[in-house]
Design a protein around this nucleic acid. Structure first.
Lengths: 260, 260
DNA sequence: CAAATCCATTGATCCAAATCAATGCAGCCC
DNA sequence: GGGCTGCATTGATTTGGATCAATGGATTTG
């Protein structure tokens, strides 16, 4: 509810773009990000329209709720949360985004950002001006394909989150989040078993549709049960299998019936 | 949980495609659907790849959970629900889809359908083979644009549903659903104030993340409060404004503070 | 380095919605 | 038309997680 105050400069221009080119062709994330499947030659054309931001401090916006839409952004380093506001003023976090993921895709339809995007830690992002990207995508089928694929992936992960919020217990929700983060860190070459949660407990609660207190209690419980080790924001996974099982379901242990 | 039994024929081929062409150029939904913004000439090329299904009976699948992905579908008439299964066997419904809306978009990323799609009443759908659609989209920028727009819209509405499930009370959720259906019926030229709910109470519960009993009680309560009239599946909106207010928020009436 | 501020944890209590239980009703099929 | 079957409503009871309340730690700032 209490907004972090912004400097005037940050107000005026939310993302501060570096003058250096982003250079997708040399980026370690190209197998996860938009460049996947795009050949060398076409990749240089993508490079021409991409601008990389300067490192953004924790709490700064990539874009704000309601901002006019002109570009989508790829996370290059760090992590970013996207969120909407309820009328009552509380945040619903729609995603925690890691390097290689695209944000701002939900703004294409309406022309303005229905959610805000804020750096959870120092982060850099790559700006992809949408008109230019669309233009390039009709010329580069592999780029169009990958853009559609990434949007599809977003719809897919939203669907999973829906099930999480609609059907799962608090315990399952937190286990699923930890499990998902673990898998995504692994994809990016980081340790899947030891990582730092860049978001606050409050953010986790606002993502999972729970109260902070509940999240806190669950961390304590998971630790007591030997599932994970928690030391502030540092998490170590102790029992990957049980965590996975918990994330998948905990209602089925009393009804493990066969699927038709 | 109990699956409607399927005939062998329906098992073998889920969607039964008519031999007639779909004819987007003559379709009354073209301003809502994929053809929006596509010119006459290109529209005929779209017509060539679209196949319209025969009317599908209530309960038949457009595609099943886990089916291999080869096409997306536009609802032409009737209504369709998309849903996933939790490991415990209960459905999380991810959307109720009306004519002009696309389904199957979440399958592009993985190549198989992460959710199933079932007709809620007699419905027809248009099949858009994805490879051909992609091929056409690189040749017809306006088609690419509209496809991206519709995918974005899907992400947007998923985000709204997330907020609904994560932050809103049972009352707000149901009000929001009724309000959303009303708005979408209006868009399609139907009465926004009097319509038939094609889905069961159970489906509504599985969409809103509630128990059936809660949904039923809310319908009764809304009727008592004079918000709506309910007669089985027939709904008449009596107080549009109060319904809208309730759908937007009901927590703010005790904290109507100004936004920063 | 101390004070201030923010964030996280823990405990006690409450409540909205789930669950359990029963009856009512509508649309079907013989 | 009468019984069947699945769907919907209503009531009683329980409970998971929210809310309220207080304290404990961790960053941050002057």
């Amino acid at each position: 509810m209490a907004e972090i105050p912004n400097t005037n400069r940050e107000q005026a221009k939310v993302v501060d773009l570096a003058s250096v080119q982003a250079a997708c062709h040399g980026c370690s994330l190209r197998q996860l990000c938009l460049p996947m499947g795009v050949n060398q030659v076409d990749l240089h054309r993508l490079d021409e329209i991409v601008r990389r931001s300067r490192p953004m401090q924790r709490g700064k916006h990539v874009f704000r709720l309601g901002d006019q839409f002109h570009a989508i952004y790829a996370i290059r380093s760090g992590s970013v949360k996207t969120y909407t506001m309820t009328d009552a003023g509380s945040e619903q976090i729609t995603g925690f985004h890691l390097p290689g993921e695209l944000i701002g895709l939900d703004a294409i339809a309406t022309g303005s950002h229905p959610c805000g995007a804020k750096a959870l830690e120092t982060a850099t992002v790559c700006e992809l001006p949408f008109l230019q990207l669309e233009e390039l995508a009709v010329q580069v089928p592999s780029l169009q394909h990958q853009l559609l694929r990434l949007m599809s992936k977003e719809i897919l992960s939203d669907g999973e989150l829906l099930t999480l919020l609609g059907k799962k217990s608090a315990e399952e929700r937190l286990a699923a989040l930890i499990f998902s983060l673990s898998a995504r860190f692994k994809e990016r070459g980081f340790s899947p078993n030891e990582f730092r949660l860049s978001m606050s407990r409050n953010d986790i609660a606002d993502y999972l549709g729970l109260a902070v207190e509940t999240v806190s209690r669950l961390f304590t419980r998971f630790q007591q049960q030997g599932l994970i080790d928690v030391q502030n924001k540092q998490v170590t996974i102790r029992d990957h299998d049980r965590l996975k099982e918990l994330a998948g379901s905990n209602a089925e242990d009393r009804a493990p019936q066969a699927r038709a």
